[in-house]
Amino acid sequence: MSGRKRTLEAISFELVMTVIAVIALAIIIAPSLVVLIVSFTSGFSLRFPPPGYSLRWYAELWNAWQLHFAAKNSLIVAVWATSLSVVLGVAAALAISRSRTLSARLLDSLFMSPLVLPALAFGLAALMLFSLVGLPVSPLTLVIGHTVVCVPYVVRNTVAALAQLEPTLLESSAVLGASRLYTFRRIVLPLIRPGIIAGAFIAFMSSFDNVPVSLFLRDAATDMLPIRMWQDLEGKLDVTIAALSGVLIIATVALVAVMERITGLSRRLTN
């Protein structure tokens, strides 16, 4: 830094980059702030700025039983899909993380592929298969479908945590006479736990927010929250949805803050 001359040219570069960065950060954060503000409107429309402020739409939300029902279904499916993802994903991550074999690398690509493939195509494919074998759409089919698209997050974060683990720790533990299971419980698991929690958190959020898979694998009896919201928005621009969005934004901010403390989420996603 010290050798750099503060020329006009250098200043122009820094100015342009900083201005674009600040504008970009504003574009990222603005929509959430706008929704939060609009959700406190006292009027009937989504006009910005609102004519006045009130909590009426949050009160309205209290009575919106269709949204409650959909939210409950989404929560149940997300909890099951996350649990299944953690059990299957952590075991698989242990197997493939330190292996350099071709089969380990192929399995890794297979487990990651739901992240890039269009989930809507997978949703349709899963519906076709389930109807072929005579399995009707139900919470079970939803949990299976969600697990496929959520497990990559658990595998990826657990593999990353295992890669940071010092192999000498495991060797020392073995030399000192600890069994593999004991070493796993007392050394490996505590060290990779933040990675597993971070993966499980992202898996949970993406299941709770999933549309493409739920679209094909749910029915009226298993309405899911993002789809209920989407269909409400297709019909009319309801201010109740703004209040619900406000609740979801605040819940997300709170959860991210908790996760940042427990797992150091921000460092994990940039390493």
Partner: peptide, 12 residues
């Protein structure tokens, strides 16, 4: 944040 919420914001 839910993708429906983010999209909804852009409608507003």
């Amino acid at each position: 944040t839910s993708v429906v919420v983010r999209t909804f914001a852009w409608i507003v």
